[in-house]
């Protein structure tokens, strides 16, 4: 158990003192940066997905030019599947970044206006951010386990 130092506790509850405010302000600025960069990253993902689909759809013609047989339907399906994966990754990143941006924006507003309600919603945004990535990571790990299990079953 931790010993509570007399100087460390307020009379009734925890406060956001000058030191805390400075840390939170800095965290808010970086959270905004993280949000904006995440949104750019998500848009890049979507762009790459479209490029991949375009490139894969064009490739059967290139194969035929080289004298190889190609299956256009399979290539188109692969291109669409690739685009869907990149699109999903882009949307996931953008939504997560919006939570981070929300947290940053609300913390900054709360500190500027000294508004307790905005501080509450900012902590709510932080909770949503963690919950969102937590749930996604659980889904990702489950998919990874299913993939490994399916690969092992196929080999047997």
């Amino acid at each position: 158990m931790e010993q509570i130092q007399p100087g460390n506790t307020s009379l009734f509850q925890l406060n956001l003192d000058a030191n805390n405010s400075y840390t939170l302000r800095s965290a808010a600025s970086w959270a905004k940066v993280l949000g904006i960069i995440g949104i750019i990253f998500g848009i890049l993902f979507v762009g790459i997905g479209l490029l991949v689909q375009n490139a894969v759809n064009k490739s059967p013609g290139q194969f035929e030019e080289l004298g190889y047989r190609s299956n256009t339907g399979v290539m188109e399906n692969m291109g669409t599947a690739g685009m869907v994966v990149y699109l999903c990754m882009g949307v996931i990143t953008i939504i997560g970044s919006i939570f981070a941006f929300n947290f940053g924006g609300k913390i900054a507003t709360a500190l500027r206006t000294n508004d307790q309600n905005t501080l509450r919603t900012a902590f709510g945004a932080l909770r949503n951010y963690f919950a969102y990535w937590g749930v996604l990571m659980i889904i990702g790990l489950l998919l990874m386990i299913i993939g490994i299990a399916a690969g092992t079953m196929q080999k047997m």
Binding site: S10, Q13, L14, N15, L16, D17, S21, A110, L111, N114, Q116, L119, R120, F123
Partner: peptide, 9 residues
């Protein structure tokens, strides 16, 4: 200033 009240907590 701001504090960590019950709801925030």
């Amino acid at each position: 200033g701001l504090s960590i009240d019950d709801q925030s907590s």
